[in-house]
Simulated scan of single mutants.
Amino acid sequence: MSLLDTRSRAPTALRRRTRSGARWPWMLLPALLFFAAFWLLPFARLMRVGLSPDRTTQQSGYWTAIGQPQYLQSLLNTLLLSLAVTLLTLLIAAVVGCFLARQRFAGRGTLLALLTFPLAFPGVVVGFLVVMLAGRQGLLAQLSISLFHERWTLAYSLSGLFIGYLYFSLPRAIITLVAASEKLDRSLEEAARSLGASQWRITWDVIVPGLKPALLSSGAICFATSMGAFGTAFTLGTSLNVLPLTIYGEFTNYANFATAAALSVVMGAVAWLGLMLARALAHGAGEKA
Rank of each mutant, 00 (worst) to 15 (best):
N77E: 05
A180R: 03
V85D: 00
W152E: 02
L51E: 10
S52D: 12
V95D: 05
F105G: 04
G21H: 08
A191V: 15
R55Q: 08
K183A: 11
A101I: 09
A31T: 15
P11V: 11
T153H: 01
Y156C: 01
A113G: 12
K183D: 07
R151T: 15
R193E: 12
S181K: 01
G160S: 11
T56V: 13
W152T: 04
N253C: 04
D185S: 04
T78Q: 03
Q59E: 08
A13T: 11
R151Y: 04
E182T: 11
K183R: 12
A141L: 09
V126M: 06
T56F: 10
F128V: 13
S52E: 13
L215D: 02
I145N: 09
L46Y: 04
Y71M: 02
A120W: 14
F168L: 13
E189Y: 01
R102T: 14
L51M: 05
F35R: 00
A65I: 01
A141R: 14
P213R: 07
S169I: 05
F99Q: 10
A106D: 06
L40H: 02
L41M: 07
P118F: 08
A229I: 08
P30Q: 05
A22W: 14
L87N: 07
G50Y: 01
I174V: 15
P209F: 03
R279K: 12
Q68C: 01
S218E: 06
R45E: 09
L184D: 04
G219R: 04
P11Q: 05
G164P: 00
